[in-house]
Amino acid sequence: MSEPLLQLSGVHTHIGPYHILQGVDLTVPKGGVSVLLGRNGAGKSTTLRTIMGLWTASSGSITFQGRDITRMETPAISRSGIAFVPENMGIFTDLTVAENMTLAATKGPIDPKRLAWIQELFPPVRTFWNSSAGTLSGGQKQMLAVSRAIVESRVLILIDEPTKGLAPAIINAMTDALKELKETDTTILLVEQNFAMASSIGDTVAVMDDGRIIHDGDMAEMVADKELQERLMGLSLEAHQ
């Protein structure tokens, strides 16, 4: 763990009349996978969207690589090296898989070596290269969404629940791919509800509830500490019911 890559301090986000983020303090170290856990409605997706500039923080600050990005526009944030895989995957179903990938490559044509590597990670991206993205299954769309985020090397990737609604076999494939991605110098901030998956690849973990971070620490520590898990997950479950 070295210097923070991304730092949120005291971030508040309002969506219409709702006060969703109520002072989020979150540090994402450079390298590895940081996991953000929490029940539905805790503010995980809003946190990612606020980082991306899709919602504007009403107060607090977000710094990325030492630069204040709180008030920057989404395209500028994206071009500074942050890729985003939203919860709904954001696939352009009217376009082909190839066209989806082409649009994601903003710096020029796709590097063939990198594309070969991506297609190794996610074979459907090769199989259905010229098919309409709308005909892909949910799991294949999710693979395309992640592929699109890594079509060029990024500093940070925000991934919102990549295993949501997927079959176990596909979750394993996704986990393997993220593990391999972790070996490159890309940092990942992963929102996840599947603790088994999250604990197998996470280095650090933060837990959110009611628009705040309620726990922050190493993943190993949390995996070892059943009581802590019980307390945080139990809390999540209780609140959930």
Partner: peptide
């Protein structure tokens, strides 16, 4: 929104 997140100014 996704086009913006890819870095283009819609």
């Amino acid at each position: 929104e996704m086009v913006e997140a890819l870095g283009y100014r819609v």
